[in-house]
Amino acid sequence: MTLRSKWRALAFLGVAILAPLFSAAQKPPARANMCNACHGPNGNALLKDMPSIAGQPKVFIENQLVLIREGMRDIPQMKGVLNNVPDSELTELATYYAGLKIAKPPVQKQTDLYNKGELLSKEMRCGICHLPTYEGREQMPRLAGQREDYLLYTMRAMKANQAVGRDPIMIASLYGISDEDLKAISHYQSRLSN
């Protein structure tokens, strides 16, 4: 083996070893631009009532993408957008956004509302599924650091049974809760950083 080919082999090896470490963070899938148009740069939403998808569990994003494509979860803005997109591309998108970091939450908070939300989140046992850190896992979404207005928007929709295609267990978890309580929970969870 010549010196040059040794270097080449070494360089190739280096790329082969390091590529998996960087590829997820560095190379967005082709469709990511389309997602970012609404869900914000790097999946951190800037629009009102729009969820951030950065740092969500991979299975959660993948499940939602499949259910939206199948028409089981009804999101008018996304209707048809995923038609005929193969599972493999949905998995790629899910892996990509799961690997991105959710933005730092807003610093300012209303202490009373925050404390009330913290207590309610414990009492409602959100942490059993979403984990005590509220970072989510597998099919259960991250709540920590999600946009406050989106948390409120989506829980209101679930409470009103208007969240077509969403998990019936989550919908049932909001039986009887007041709008004031939903506001407190949204405020608290949106301020969490991890």
């Binding site: 299975v59 499940n63 059993i128 599924c129 984990l131 099919q139 267990i169 049932a172 978890s173 909001l174």
Partner: peptide
């Protein structure tokens, strides 16, 4: 009413992290 899956859940299990297993849709 208690949320459907938490009905009958004792205080002793309030800090449990047992949850339904994630399905695979792909």
């Amino acid at each position: 009413p208690a949320p459907a899956w938490k009905q009958g859940m004792p205080e002793a299990m309030a800090n449990s992290t047992l949850a339904p297993l994630a399905g695979k849709l792909t």
